[in-house]
Each structure stands twice: as C-alpha cells, then as structure tokens.
Design a protein around this nucleic acid. Structure first.
Lengths: 218, 218
DNA sequence: CGAAATATTGACTGTTTGATAAAACTCTAT
DNA sequence: ATAGAGTTTTATCAAACAGTCAATATTTCG
C-alpha cells in the first residue's frame, strides 16, 4: 500500500475513476444538505460503492468535503478572473454578468455547495476566502474604480457592485425551486435563463428610472 | 394533560415561555445547519432544558421546524405586502428595497433559515410557496406592470425585478461572512448597511451607465 | 504465469441521534 | 392545604452515524 496522501501524482486508473464518482456524489449530497446534514452512507450509495470502500479513498468525511471545495473554488472564481482592465467597461461588465449567469445555469450544485458553506459561517473555508477571494476582489475593485474615474461607469462602491452581481446571478441556482414556483415550471430552463439575462442587462446598465425622466411627474 | 395540538388557545405561562425559548434556539440551529444538520440535543441545550422536556412541547423535530416556518413566513413577506399601488412608483420601490435591507440587517437568522430551506429544494414548504408566495408575487407583479405601462419605471419582467431585490438584499444576511471578509470586519455593521443602501439605490434607479452617455465614446 | 500492489467487502465498534415511558416534581386554583 | 393539571427528569431504546479492521478479491506488471 502506498501513502496516497503524501504522494502527489501517481494515481491508478481505478483511483481516478472512483475519486471522480465519489466527488460527484458528494457534491450532490453536500450541496443540498450541507456538511453536517450529509452522510457518508448516502454519498457511498450515490457513488455506487460500499462505505468502507469509499473510506478507502477518503479517510474522513471532512476529507471529501475539503477535496471538493479545493477543486471547485478556482473554477468558481474564473469569471471574475477574466474581468479585463483593458476591455471596454460596459461590455466587459455585461459579459461578466452573463458568464456568472451561465455558471449558475450550468453548475447549480457547485453554487449551492458554496452557498451552504457560507451560510454556515464558512468554518471550513474562511482562510481560503481571506487568501484567495479577498485579494482577487480587491484587484478587480481597483479596476472598477479606474473605470469610474474615467467616467465610464457610475461611481459606486465597487465591492457592493460585485456583491450585487454575485447575488442576482447565483439566485437562479440557489433559489431555483422558488424561481420555478413563481415563474411556473412550464417556463423552460432555457427561457428562464434568457429572460434573466435580458432583465439583468437592463438593471445593471440603466436601472429602473425611465431615461431622461429624473424630474418630471404626471 | 390537555391535548395541546388541537386546542387552539389555552396556554400556560410556562408553556408560552418555553415554546418561545425553544423556537428561538431552534432558529439558531436550523438557520445555520439546515433541517438535517441540526439536532434536538443542541436545540435543547441552547434553550437551557433537557431533551425530553423539549420533546414534551414539540413531539417531533419536524414539529419545531414547521412551527418556526409558519411563524416567520408572514413576517418575511410583510415588506412586499406593503408595496402600495397608489404610491409613487420610484419612492415606493426604494422604500421596499430599504425595508428588505432592514430585514436582512435585523433578522439575519430568519433570512438564513429560509435560504437553507429553499436551497434544499423546499421539501417542507413548497406548498406554502404555491399557496401564499406565488399569489402575492403575481399581485405585486401586476402593480409593477401598471407602473411600466404608465411609463413610470422601465419595462422589465416584474418577477425578475422582484428576484433581484430579494437576492441583493438578502445577500447581506445570508453571505454575511463573505461580505465581512471582503469589506473587513472594521467596517461596522451600521456602516455596511448604509453603504449597501446607498449602492442599491443607485443600482436600481440609475444602473451603471453614466447619465446621458448611452452612445459617446472616448 | 505468479507475486506484489491495489481494491473491495463484511462484520464490527463506539457514539450520536430521534423518540418513548413512567416516575417524580411543581404549579395553580379552589 | 391539597387535588389534579401541568411540568420535568431519569432511564431507556432502536436506528443512524462515522470510522476501523482483518480477510478476501482483483488488478498490475515483471
């Protein structure tokens, strides 16, 4: 038996396959029930293997969870990484919003996993947020401030701007059930996505006040 | 022993006190760990009583949860209820946003409880959403459509507009840890609230595109 | 092939969890 | 003060839970 934890690369075909299946099953469970609410038994069942066999690959429940988080954080921050200082401000923001919305559509389980973790006070990833998320946000906030100084976008607190993009887009993944109750299940997922994209574009670009209507009254 | 479940009113002083303490402790636990992740032991400990004693007031875990939800849903929807068709559209929307933000500030546990439940697919309150939330949203969406037809606010899908108000405001309760990591804990809760209110006002009224700058380029 | 490395299983352990029963206690109204 | 309703505790249970271990089966590769 080799020490799996220390050795960095050498992985069997079976190892890779099974770890993949386990992490996928774990995502399913953790994203819905949170860390404490999820059980190894259910993850193992979902992954189609016995519990001791699963524990052969990940010795403790927490190891599965941490492996999941580590694997997903970079992917999750990718859209913000891509926000480009040299691009045109408004189109750049628009495409960031659209990319985040696509993430919510294509990776709802990942969105819910992070939501669950943050909701619980982020006990297991607070350090990661400090070391990875915060510097990235500060870097991009500086980009946004530059655009504001150039008069390219309205002057607002760039960090709150980022919060509002996160919250509005991730809402469609995290609160999907509620969205479906209100929009009706007949509104296909694709239609909902397009409607949301159109609405958010209007909101973030122009807001709700009708153009050139700041003062007039009926 | 009287049948507590059936009898509608008659409650002892002790009964009222203890149910209050239990529900408060339950809110603390359920809002963080979700239904499955929370345990009766911890709720009882938090409420300062023994587990069997707690179960004397609520026979099953689920009964506590349902009592909590039932008690909180109305309060949670109150700000939307108050959205008034006869008021001025823009100030009316502004004050709805502010009220929702105040709720997020003053009742973060309630916000997280609902978030947790929806995140899990709302298995226990889906019916309530159908019977209470949906009609209310449809009623208010009609109000918003009226304002749009009068040209008082920009024409958008009113339901997505409501989603964006929910998500941006509740974000400050549900994702509080993340917000604090990014803004720094030194930014007091009061300061964060005012900054958020100011930002959201700009976003929802005017968006990010600088006024009268729809076409011009540097 | 055949031996070493890897993978899987069944049986098991100690603990936590949701829930119950009955006995003991306390409060309240007469 | 005291009977009876209402409250609390002690003891207990079965199921679910995270995790271990030794034995068995399978794969890998010289």
């Amino acid at each position: 038996m080799k020490a799996r934890a220390t050795e960095t690369q050498r992985k069997t075909r079976i190892q890779m396959e099974n770890e993949e299946r386990i992490l996928d099953a774990a995502l399913e469970e953790f994203s819905v029930h949170g860390f404490r609410g999820a059980t190894i038994d259910r993850i193992a069942e979902h992954a189609g293997m016995s519990k001791p066999n699963l524990l052969y690959y990940f010795r403790r429940k927490q190891d599965i969870y941490e492996a999941l988080i580590a694997r997903l954080l970079d992917k999750w921050l990718e859209p913000l990484q891509e926000l480009d200082a040299v691009g045109d401000p408004l189109p750049e923001l628009q495409s960031y919003i659209r990319r985040k919305l696509e993430m919510a559509r294509d990776f709802p389980r990942e969105s819910r996993l992070f939501a669950n973790e943050i909701l619980q006070g982020a006990p297991r990833i607070k350090r990661l947020l400090e070391s990875e998320l915060k510097p990235l946000v500060e870097e991009k906030a500086e980009v946004l401030r530059g655009w504001m100084k150039q008069g390219k976008i309205n002057p607002v607190d760039p960090r709150h701007l980022i919060f509002s993009i996160w919250s509005t887009t991730q809402h469609y993944a995290d609160f999907d059930v509620q969205v479906q109750v209100i929009l009706g299940p007949d509104s296909g997922a694709a239609g909902r996505f397009e409607d949301a994209a159109r609405y958010l574009e209007t909101l973030f670009l122009d807001g709700l006040r009708p153009q050139g209507n700041a003062e007039e009254q009926a």
